[in-house]
Design a binder for these strands. Structure first.
Lengths: 83, 83
DNA sequence: GGCTTTTATGATGCGTGGATCATGTTCCCT
DNA sequence: AGGGAACATGATCCACGCATCATAAAAGCC
């Protein structure tokens, strides 16, 4: 699974999908990441925007990699993924 | 070009590399992103941690995509990139 | 329908990010 | 070496993220 994020909404949505894909509750993710269930709820629904620190905490807890790549290349790569 | 980021240091470094790859100065990037040269300097040197908002502003200005993907898959993909 | 678990929301307080201005350093170029 | 551009730093101020607690709403299950 793989998500592109260009807005806090995208990011919240991606986090939620990844969490669910792992069968975790917000509380379990909170414990694993050292954050709070309430904080995660607000990030997933993009009621709050998160800092890099918390984002990295979440990535670590979800075993996610954060990749920065050129947008031009992404469209090509995403296209390839269809086949 | 493509960078993996797991820490604010990684992120600052990646931003700087991407900016230089585009031949932009901090001031130019500041204008393009609606941020301030001072803020960008502090993010690149990870003296400040940035929020999701500013990260997305920078990505947009640098034409970068932010991708969330599974770590297990990344190592395989990175390996493939060598060939 | 009731009970439990999960998620959302609302308030408070502290810490810190980013805007803004001023100024100090470092780098380049000739 | 001197001058200008680029980058770093330091201070102040306001806004907002996150911790924390309490509680409400939703979803799941019997």
């Amino acid at each position: 699974m793989q998500y592109f994020a260009r807005t806090p909404q995208d990011m919240g949505h991606a986090i939620r999908q990844m969490r669910k894909a792992r069968g975790m509750t917000q509380r379990q993710l909170a414990v694993r990441s050292g954050l709070w269930q309430e904080t995660i709820s607000k990030i997933e629904t993009s009621q709050s925007r998160a800092t890099l620190d918390t984002l990295f905490d979440l990535c670590a807890a979800l075993d996610l990699e954060l990749v920065l790549t050129e947008r031009s290349k992404v469209s090509a790569a995403a296209f390839e993924d269809l086949f």
